[in-house]
Design a protein around this nucleic acid. Sequence first.
RNA 1: GCGGCAUUAGCUCAGUCGGUAGAGCACUGGAUUGUGAUUCCAGGUGUCACCGGUUCGAUCCCGGUAUGUCGCCCCA
Length: 435
Amino acid sequence: MSNTIQAKLQGIRGMPDVLPGEAEFWELFEEAVRSWLKSYGYRPIRMPIVEPTPLFKRAIGEVTDIVEKEMYSFVDSLNGELLTLRPEGTAGCVRAVIQHNLIAQQPQRLYYIGQMFRHERPQKGRYRQFHQVGVEALGFSGPDIDAEMILMGARLWDDLGLEGIKLQLNTLGQPEERARHRAELIAYFEQHQDVLDEDAKRRLHTNPLRILDSKNPAMQPIILGAPKLIDFLGEASLEHFNAVQQVLRDAGLPFEINPRLVRGLDYYNLTVFEWVTDRLGAQGTVCAGGRYDGLIGQLGGKPAPACGFAMGVERLVSLIRDAGGEPLPAGTDVYVVHQGEAAARMAFRVAEGLRDNGVDVVLHCGGGSFKSQMKKADSSGAMFAVIIGDDEVAAGEVSLKPMRDEGDEQKRVKIDDLADAIMNTMLDCDEEEEA
RNA sequence: GCGGCAUUAGCUCAGUCGGUAGAGCACUGGAUUGUGAUUCCAGGUGUCACCGGUUCGAUCCCGGUAUGUCGCCCCA
């Protein structure tokens, strides 16, 4: 033993492991999400987790919290490149779309699922490594795709059995409209400097729009009296916003217009939306997005409109668990118990033979008493134990013991008949359940 | 990044007014040397998160650190 104190090896703060038991909920969620995306015609795309740092600075905005203080950036010591672990997915997706000319011929509906990284103080529902489902529709200009994306959300919450997720909607207008509003806003807040808190003063000339999102009670009166963006919107912007709302009303989807809804990333324009819940404490947003018509051009592509949103997987899985969702069953169909050398060899043949027939099998490994093997067969959740000992080997048979059905008795079955015997019993059970 | 609270067995938690600790569940073995889930019996040496301070003595008091959690900030 050395005298050095060995630091306990542990994962990085804010980057939790997802263990069996919870991971099954993730798989349930991912399966539901993939089938939902397919039903809307979205296709998968996979980008690297690491991108050149300038990509995020240009896409997200230099003065955002993400770029200012939350990015995991580092120098690639082998060639001096400045790289960053992606803090969000849209920038990388757009980069890939530009690089491979994906929307040269036609618009694309794309999605990805994966981890993102932001150096924030961890909390429930907020982690330094977290996962998002990103959904992007590139090359679409009309309000129809915005509305469809919002309707998609409503369907997913329904598919997942989630209640109490509410829609908030806003429009940010076009850059020139925002610029005029911004100038008025700065002028207005400058007249009320004495009321502004430190954070607001800092933002006054960098990102005044976000002062509107402040929760500081002392500032609420002047925020309420501030120039409203909607008064600066032109005909086209208003029409776009109205058209989105019209589809939502036609679909009977309730929403709240929240003029203070300001997305944290700079690339948005026109429609922005958030799905929020009050069941997750301070982290209420489970899904958010909007239109980003300028981003593709801003990143060097041929200018094209686009719209997208992202969901927080940790937050949604947490909601699913709280709602009493059932994870995918972790059990197996058959657990093979065996005693003796000849039986062990036969057990492999039996197990593989069952798998050839589509039966899930756990083969007991690691020896142990017969009793302990039966206990493991029970706790595995298997419908059947297949028991192989000297008697069975000699007869070329196995003993098939139903573990869940009180009425059924253990019986001897020829190896060739085993798969059929199991399948027939399982089918009977399914029919009984359906009846 | 700031503030509050927490951290004791694999899990959920008691407890020690400072004298190095317990329960339930789980797990393992046995009663039953080929039959689980029920029953009974047996099985705990756990750096009481880590580092330091006070003390004859610290799991307990104090300080720091780490991690979690709640809120702020921000966001998915």
